[in-house]
Design a protein around this nucleic acid. Structure first.
Lengths: 146, 146
DNA sequence: ATTGCAAATGCAAGTCATTTGCAATATACA
DNA sequence: TGTATATTGCAAATGACTTGCATTTGCAAT
């Protein structure tokens, strides 16, 4: 498969051994359109026949993050971190306060604002982090928005 | 003291008993110009002669947050949460990556953007968190922006 | 001032996500 | 194929916080 070869190649580039666990996790992360927790990855792996220990999942996610293949989100609300395949895109997230689901948002309303801010403050701006919180449609139905 | 009476009044308004622990913690938070962790509060209390258990610190901070007297920051980098006296201001921070200085920014460029986002996503938006990173004038001079 | 009782506290034990030590195993490359 | 080294599973540890429960305290009604 093309994607698998690509994944394999990316591991090699990073100086990582191509193990079935790593390949399976990176594959899954690549295909997942929303960030996933270590436990979700663990359940997915064991569900799809790739037997793996939870600690290995944690170690693998961290290794892949170190190499820049994944992005780690330390959640502000929930207690557990989420990981996501790094597609090298600048984006923000709409975070549901009910179920902690993260919805990536592609467009960014801040580019012009940053330029104005640079002039006003003498900072050289290197980047920003924006999370928007709210309640998704399902949680609104469940009455979770209190 | 005026401030103490004010603090006492605020506790009463919230239906909270005026205990020496709560008063001491709220006092400290009011005076502190930077957010503090539970452990920092614990050390401060016991250092100033207000003997208190760590679990009580946690419970107190959470109670005060529930009542809106404090703001909780789940820091992105550190593992522990920080609390800060709620002065009822919406603000963002320009954070210097060289010296960690935080410059508060009063204006917020996101109100209109949020309204558009609500329509586009069916989320009910409750708030947002924006930090902008860069290098301040002094750190630029020091060549710290790598 | 005294009392009654819910709220607040201390202490110890419990959670829960994540990390780590170590022995067993798998991989890359000679 | 052999072997040095990276990776894994398992169990135990960590660290920030939370909770159960018996005791104490604040405060409102006597």
């Amino acid at each position: 498969m093309e994607m698998n070869d690509d994944i394999k190649e990316r591991l090699k580039e990073c100086g990582l051994k191509n193990t079935k666990h790593r390949k399976a996790i990176l594959d899954f992360m690549f295909c997942s359109r929303v960030p996933a927790s270590a436990e979700q990855v663990y359940i997915q792996m064991n569900g799809q026949g790739t037997s793996i220990d939870l600690s290995t999942v944690y170690r693998t996610l961290e290794t892949l993050r170190e190499k820049g293949l994944l992005i780690k989100h330390d959640r502000l609300n929930d207690t557990r971190a989420l990981y996501e395949y790094n597609r090298m895109e600048h984006k923000h997230y709409l975070v549901c306060l009910g179920c902690n689901k993260m919805l990536p948002i592609k467009d960014c309303p801040l580019a012009e604002y940053e330029r104005a801010l640079e002039k006003a403050t003498n900072f050289v701006i290197a980047g920003h982090k924006l999370d928007i919180f709210g309640y998704c449609a399902e949680c609104q139905e469940k009455g979770l928005q209190e």
